[in-house]
Design a protein around this nucleic acid. Structure first.
Lengths: 215, 215
DNA sequence: GGCAAGGGTGAGCGATCGCTTAGGAGCGGT
DNA sequence: ACCGCTCCTAAGCGATCGCTCACCCTTGCC
């Protein structure tokens, strides 16, 4: 039954670090199921079935169903943070770095929508300890974007009266891509990324040269 | 029992139109529970308990648990559409009407976050028929905002290369307020509405006079 | 071969789910 | 009093949930 390639192509391999092969297949199955139906509506039998295993096999690699969500959420947030850090600490003006940060962040949410949906929208299905850990990661994500904006304000490139509020809005805009993307395939992740980068530069009052717009 | 028949004009209470009193209490309890835990994680016993009734009482007024969600979602979307229509069809320039539309839409999502969360994020817990009905309402919401933007482009007030994409982004920005608002009470719905109206005017390239920015 | 160890399965446990059924309290009309 | 009607509850049905347990199969090392 197993086809050679399932859900191939657009999605990168962020799960390469999950070491036992069966554990990775279970995790990938859980990501699909959680994204389709939501955490609470997904059964452990469904996850195991997608991975081609019996329901009991899940509990060899994971203590509970919640541990699966926790692992997915942590790895996903680390990946998102890594994407933003790469863009934020690159060479170039704040304008260019903000455009690249938004563009790549949006591409990740659109292209890896399956993963991003779970990561961004199933947060409060976690227990208190796990949720606190994830929230700490989110604060780092916020700080990264805010840093670029503050730098642009200092250099005079940006005109932003409310830095914290604008940061929140920029992140909110990017994250929500995971909710609506792919309802119809009329836009590619790259197109949405370019559009959103332009919109965000407008939001911060930056000069949008063709170089920055073309990305 | 109802002394007065409330016609469609009652704006103060969103659930005023739910006619049997017990049915309204159940609906309100369901909104709270769905917003806190999500649809699938909420039990019918929990809903009935919050309304001070036995689990069976729910099925006197609603056929299934899903019907509760359907009713909440439809009423909520109609309210959201009404808010946007009021702003879109008011007097004034596209700039002013867009600012008012965003501002009031955001205020609704922030102030009525409990309701808005259910309305905006539990959509695909509905069955196919109910979901199709809600999606139709969403298209009307989208058309309302797009209409203002198109008008602003025609009049030369706005500079928007991608009207459909920008409309999507504006709505996405507003809707996502329901996800993050109230995590800390440092901002009032009015403040967020004003901030977002300003950000959206920037996104469409409008002249932001103090008159449009204020209020 | 012997044999421990770890990855896997079939069956099922206790709990809980959405929902149903049988019945009753209150109440106005006649 | 009796009826019919609305609103509600106690009890519980069948199904399904997360998770466990007893056991099996493969693998590598001696």
């Amino acid at each position: 039954m197993s086809t050679a390639e399932e859900t191939a192509g657009a999605e990168a391999q962020p799960w390469g670090e999950v070491t036992p092969d069966a554990a990775r297949r279970l995790l990938l199955a859980a990501v699909e199921a959680f994204a389709e139906r939501g955490y609470h509506a997904t059964t452990t039998r469904d996850i195991a079935g997608r991975a081609g295993m019996s329901p009991a096999a899940l509990y060899i690699h994971y203590k509970t169903k919640e541990e699966l969500l926790h692992r997915i959420s942590r790895i996903g947030h680390e990946k998102a943070l890594d994407i933003l850090r790469t863009a934020a600490r690159a060479e170039g003006s704040p304008t260019r770095r903000l455009a690249e940060a938004v563009s790549s962040f949006v591409r990740w949410h659109a292209g890896g929508r399956t993963t991003a949906r779970v990561v961004q929208y199933e947060l409060d299905s976690l227990g208190p300890d796990a949720r606190a850990e994830i929230i700490a990661l989110r604060r780092l994500v916020d700080a990264e974007v805010r840093g670029i904006i503050e730098e642009g304000v200092r250099s005079g490139e940006f005109d932003v009266p409310d830095v914290r509020g604008t940061t929140l809005a920029v992140l909110s805009l990017c994250i929500d891509v995971a909710r609506w993307f792919n309802v119809n395939g009329s836009r590619t992740p790259e197109e949405v990324g370019a559009l959103y980068a332009d919109l965000v530069l407008r939001m911060v009052g930056a000069e949008r040269t063709d170089a920055a717009r073309a990305e």
